[in-house]
Design a binder for these strands. Sequence first.
DNA 1: TTTGACAATGTAAACGTTACCACATTCTTT
DNA 2: AAAGAATGTGGTAACGTTTACATTGTCAAA
Lengths: 352, 352
Amino acid sequence: MKTFTLAELNFIGKTKLKLCLMASMDDVAKRAGVSIATVSRVLNNNGKVNEATRARILKAIKELKYQPSRVAKRLRSKSISSNLLGVLIPDIQNPFYVEVLEGIEEIAYQNNYALIMCNFGQDEKKEKLYLEILQSEAIDGLIAAPASEEDVQLKKMVKDGLPVVCVDRGLSEIDVDVVLIDNEAGAYNAVDFLAKSGYKRIAHITGLLSIPSSVLREKGYKRALQDNGLPIIDELIKYGDSKLPSGVQLCEELLALPEPPDAIFTGNNLITLGALEVIHKKNLKIPDEIAILGFDDMFWASSLNPPLTAVRQPAREIGRRAGELLIQRINEPERSSIQMILNAELMKRSSA
Amino acid sequence: MKTFTLAELNFIGKTKLKLCLMASMDDVAKRAGVSIATVSRVLNNNGKVNEATRARILKAIKELKYQPSRVAKRLRSKSISSNLLGVLIPDIQNPFYVEVLEGIEEIAYQNNYALIMCNFGQDEKKEKLYLEILQSEAIDGLIAAPASEEDVQLKKMVKDGLPVVCVDRGLSEIDVDVVLIDNEAGAYNAVDFLAKSGYKRIAHITGLLSIPSSVLREKGYKRALQDNGLPIIDELIKYGDSKLPSGVQLCEELLALPEPPDAIFTGNNLITLGALEVIHKKNLKIPDEIAILGFDDMFWASSLNPPLTAVRQPAREIGRRAGELLIQRINEPERSSIQMILNAELMKRSSA
DNA sequence: TTTGACAATGTAAACGTTACCACATTCTTT
DNA sequence: AAAGAATGTGGTAACGTTTACATTGTCAAA
């Protein structure tokens, strides 16, 4: 039986690859009868190259369907853009992040960046692993919604000079670009609207309290109650975890109260959906028997019955802005950091 | 004024990086007083290494917080797993793909793969660019829902030996792993259920006909009508594009018919949401005045009012299976290809 | 004719890995 | 005791780029 050394196998493999897969600069250079340096010059449009030579090289590139290896580029020089961005999001199930992601992708595409997407599902261990991977992939920059503001590892990466933009939440004691909305104001306006509409017992189901936005929304909720002369009733505030099941459970608890609320202000979209499930199961009329107003709009909020009144975060724009800031920072690392606060809009439909 | 040559600047930059960023194998080797070859042996657990040496190296790795560069690894040997997978999906706005993505991510995470995510939004030009990028990123494998079954570029990549798994749709005349559901049966069962429930004028809004699943669903719809002795009425079949606005428009057209349908079977989830928007705007009672049954379940379908009856594609499982198949194929490239057909389940709720 | 400015090109050293080979040592065998 | 195997190491050539530097011409000014 013929056996092969690894070298031979390697050679065979390579031959196969050469036959069908990517041509390298070397191949182009050979075919055009020049050195790889000249090919590089043509590709990057720097240095002087004779027109005839350039044409020959371009022809060779076409013929061989040459495509530069982004991997080799990245290895060669971190400083030079390798066109790969990381995105680290807490929960891809959440339509809000999906929309943010869309915005980021839009900008990335326009600027010829690819996206490496990491979804850590609120799991800090997973987040840590993904951060390590991203670092070792030598990304040019990162857009992240960190698990918490204290995120040690992410802070370290920022300090080490990795361009980072945070969305939805920042990093404490660290100078970093942030794009978010005024959560307190958004919540305030929502609850103010409820109060002015005549609701007296307005409940609130919060998101995970380790996320700053949840805390701010609760703050806005309380302030709006006070300003409208309504009491803050502890049993009307339920603390959830930003996921759908907690919306279900806590809404049930609220409705089972001896004196149930006449309106619910939910802390994020998944909680809203959970609450809706309960309300419909109990066959309660919205908004007559119970009003509901959700933080986070959804693109299909109009398809709900009745159409949902919601605080709309301009998620797509958040993504776009974050993308733009990141690319700016990559090109100008020393730029002083920016905190961009976008407006949340109250979408008045019929559920409250 | 002191000026610097590029070389000097480069050196400064590098020093800075060395100070704060990643240590290389070289650094580890120096600190442990061995050669990089030995470090490599320790890292990859091949070859014999003295226990004492190994300990010293591991210590150095810890101290320097050394992390191998995935980029260098990928450059060095394509054949060896570099732990990066590509995902190419048509529409991240569509909850179905989000759920598929979740499943893929779950498997990828378990197997230590990172995901590079490309959303081409049904735009063939964008798809082409992303395929190029993925190729030049030297990914280990790709999970894709191609724009069409004829996708020339993707076909070429498969032929060139890139491990590929298709979801939701295959590639014509090409041996490739595919994970999908029996669309025709799913549609048949749904419409059969509607017919058996007594609906007589069952309309259908299709998805993009360039997607095979849309065609199959229409086929199932027609077959179910025939088998139940119902006529196929052309004006009750509307051809959409798999997006929400087309659901809105076409549903409006259906309801404006002199003899409107008594039930609508929608071709995908975005169309369903569009149709619901119209139905609610017209204040029609579901299911009494109009029934609706959607292809594609959504995780919040129970939150709709009334809860939506839907054909449930096990999207997450599709993603998981695709991920598993891909990793298998990466490890065993010559394995004969598999077509995996999962079951679609009719989720009977209250909208039909 | 020399000088040197400039254009057009080539050479080679990185980047951080992997894996083949070679070389010492030691430990078994006969 | 000599031979051979096994163990533990180091050296080094790739992988596909970029780029500083070197080298060749060519042409104009001195």
